[in-house]
Each structure stands twice: as C-alpha cells, then as structure tokens.
C-alpha cells in the first residue's frame, strides 16, 4: 500500500514535470487554450460567485456576536476582510474548482482514453499531452487566480450586506475599513497561492484522466480521485503557503 502510494507520487511528479518540458516546445495550441479558458473561467463564474457571496455573508453574521461580546463590533469589516481575502475566498474557490473543473477534466480525458480518442490523436501525428494537458493546465493556472480575485470582491460585498443585517454600516465606512486593513502582504500571497492551486487541479485532473482504464468504471474513478487528490493538495499547498508567509513575517 505504502509502496503503491510512493509509485503514484512518482508518476504524478513525472507527469507534472513533463508539463514544463512540453510548455516550452514550439506551437502552442492557442485556440484550444482559449477554449479551455472559456470553459474553466466563464462556466465556473456563477458557482464561484454565489458561493463566495454566501461565505462572505455567513462569516460576517457568525462573527458579529463574538465581537459584540467584546465591544469590538466596529472591527467587523477589518476582521472579515482579512479572513476572506487571505484564506476563505481563495481556498473555497480552489475547492469548488477541484470539484467542478478537476472532475470534469478527469472524466473528459478518461472518456477520451477509453474510447481511443487519445490514441487517435497520436496516429494523427498530434502530441495529445501538448494538445489536451498543457492547454488545460495553463487554463486552470490562469483562470483560478482570476476566479479567486472575483471571489474576494463578491465575498466582501456579501460581508457588507451581512454587517448591515443587525446594524448600520455605511458603504463608504465599510470599504474604507476593508482597504485600510488589507495590505500588500495579505493580498499578494493569497493570489500567488491560487496559481499553485490552479496548477495542481489541472495536473491531477489531467493525470487521472490520461491514465484512466477499465472502461466506464475507470472514468468514474478518475473523476472521483481527481477531486479527492486535488482537494487534499489544495490544503497542503495552503499549509505550506502559511508557513512561508509566517517565515517572511507577512502574517
């Protein structure tokens, strides 16, 4: 069991490393990359937006009673904005994308593998890794940070509405407090880590799909394990990111 896990880690690492070798080779599949950006970005927009809005609203409503108890209700926008921008919005976005995009890539490529469409690309003289994997991983790496930035904005707006349910906080006051609180060290690391989230979601989905077997059952397993492994890796990257920002004194 342990040996199998290490073999799997080795294979994933080799698959992930191949991405950079293929990326620098000429003839970027630009139209396929743009198509994937549309699917990954545009099609996830509403789901990420709704979830981020609800998270902002809920976090604000739930935080308020504790702050009221300490007479620190005025700190609500400050506390909520740091929680949302540093942690909640990027991680929730990544987890939603792991579920929606990671499983989609795993199932799509897995289905292409078992119906010999990937072999058909080889015999057409096309490198399927370059056409299918590089474009999808580039798209997830680029789109998930954009979705996370959008999620930051929407969740903060949710927070504004949450703050006004039991009290009155003006639009200007709320946003002034948010922008006074957030500093470079809060925003930049949270955006940087979303590039890594996007990369692992794309790589794991592609790896699982590309190595799918055993027919339709294998396709289901590929989609399922793509979600499980990429979600786990999102948390591991988040853990590493917080350690690094701690060492750099950015927390």
């Amino acid at each position: 069991m342990v040996k199998e896990i290490f073999i799997e880690i080795g294979l994933i690492t080799r698959f992930a490393g191949r991405f950079f070798r293929e990326l620098i080779k000429p003839q970027l599949e630009f139209s396929e990359f743009v198509r994937q950006c549309f699917f990954i970005g545009n099609k996830s927009l509403s789901l990420v937006g709704i979830t981020a809005f609800i998270m902002g609203l809920v976090i604000t409503i739930q935080s308020r009673p504790t702050l009221v108890e300490f007479g620190a209700e005025a700190w609500l926008p400050k506390m909520v904005s740091v929680s949302l921008v540093r942690e909640i919005a990027p991680v929730i976005t990544a987890l939603i994308c792991a579920g929606k995009i990671g499983s989609g890539i795993g199932a799509e490529l897995g289905s292409m593998k078992v119906t010999e469409q990937i072999d058909a690309m080889y015999v057409s003289g096309t490198n399927p890794y370059k056409f299918l994997v590089v474009t999808r991983v580039m798209a997830t790496t680029l789109m998930i940070p954009i979705l996370a930035i959008m999620a930051d904005g929407v969740s903060l707006y949710g927070g504004y509405l949450g703050a006004n349910i039991h009290g009155i906080v003006s639009w200007d006051l709320y946003w002034n407090q948010v922008f006074d609180t957030l500093v470079f060290g809060d925003v930049l690391p949270s955006i940087i880590k979303t590039f890594f989230f996007g990369y692992v979601i794309g790589i794991i989905g592609s790896y699982k799909g590309f190595n799918s077997n055993r027919g339709t059952e294998g396709v289901g397993q590929s989609a399922n394990s793509a979600v499980v492994i990429s979600s786990l890796l999102v948390f591991i990257i988040d853990l590493l990111a917080v350690q690094i920002t701690d060492v750099l004194n950015l927390n």
């Binding site: 010999e116 080889y122 015999v123 096309t126 490198n127």
Partner: peptide, 29 residues
Amino acid sequence: DKMRVKVGFLFQSNALYDSMTVRENLEFP
C-alpha cells in the same frame, strides 16, 4: 509523427472526437 501522415488507422470504436463537429474532426489532422 511524420511517418503517421502516410499511415491511416481506423479504430474499432471509430475514436471520433466527440466534442468536435464532423468538420472539426476532419480538419484536425
């Protein structure tokens, strides 16, 4: 890849790209 241009392969399962139209399938190679 260059050699494969001269050798066609018809798959048992047809292996048509199901996300593409017939035109795109034929344009692909």
